[in-house]
């Protein structure tokens, strides 16, 4: 399991119901079931990954964040997780709304477009930046809605979401030390990880 998935798992209370959108090979839901006693289920777009997951006994549905979340009932889960996918969905704001309709908490991770390397490359070369995290050319990238940590916080304010926890991590999932300053995190964090709830929630 990736390190950032371990950080996500640490945010989740044992014995809860979890929906993992973009569950990939199912590593997180498998971990949550085995070590945390969670009722963890997945949604995955790649049929090969779905088949592998189900063949390992994991409850995974073929589907995607944009079209299938509306079919889940209100409050059906405690946590809804979206890993490194927000920037690739058609309607990120609607997906977040659905996540916090279905779950009490939403856990969202995304690559931070505000990282200094991207800023520097765009400034110095005048071309779309290409880095280890953003590694597909502009015409082929599935990442149609990139955002920065500050952009995401602004959206949360607009939508009235409460940020229960957040952190910036590097590509390997190591926590970045710029926790105190959002500006520094936005400059040095390669990935961002948020635990959200609705405003009226404790």
């Amino acid at each position: 399991m990736r390190l950032d998935q371990r950080l996500i798992a640490e945010m989740i209370t044992p014995g809860t119901r979890v929906l993992d959108i973009g569950s990939g090979d199912g590593a997180l839901i498998d971990y949550l079931f085995r070590t945390r006693g969670c009722d963890a289920r997945g949604i995955e777009l790649d049929m090969g990954e779905v088949t592998r997951s189900v063949a390992h006994g994991l409850p995974v549905v073929h589907g995607d964040a944009d079209h299938d979340l509306e079919h889940y009932p209100d409050g059906g889960f405690d946590y809804v997780v979206l890993q490194r996918t927000l920037q690739a969905v058609e309607r990120p704001r609607e997906v977040l709304r659905q996540m916090l309709r279905i779950g009490r908490y939403a856990i969202v991770s995304f690559p931070n477009f505000g990282h200094w390397e991207l800023r520097l490359k765009l400034l110095t070369t005048g071309r779309m930046p290409n880095t280890a995290v953003w590694n597909t050319p502009w015409y082929a990238t599935p990442n149609i809605h990139p955002c920065t940590i500050r952009d995401f916080l602004a959206l949360c304010r607009e939508e009235g979401y409460r940020v229960h926890d957040w952190m910036a991590v590097d590509e390997d999932g190591e926590r970045a030390p710029w926790r105190r300053s959002i500006r520094l995190a936005n400059l040095f964090g390669e990935q961002a990880l948020f635990l959200l709830g609705k405003a009226d929630q404790r």
């Binding site: 009722d39 289920r41 049929m47 779905v50 088949t51 997951s53 189900v54 994991l58 409850p59 995974v60 549905v61 073929h62 589907g63 299938d68 079919h71 889940y72 009932p73 059906g76």
Partner: peptide, 18 residues
């Protein structure tokens, strides 16, 4: 069927075999 099962909060896996 899968979407109906999701609405019923069922534990469901769904695979389309190529």
């Amino acid at each position: 069927l899968v979407r109906a099962l999701n609405r019923a909060a069922a534990n469901v896996s769904f695979v389309e075999i190529e």
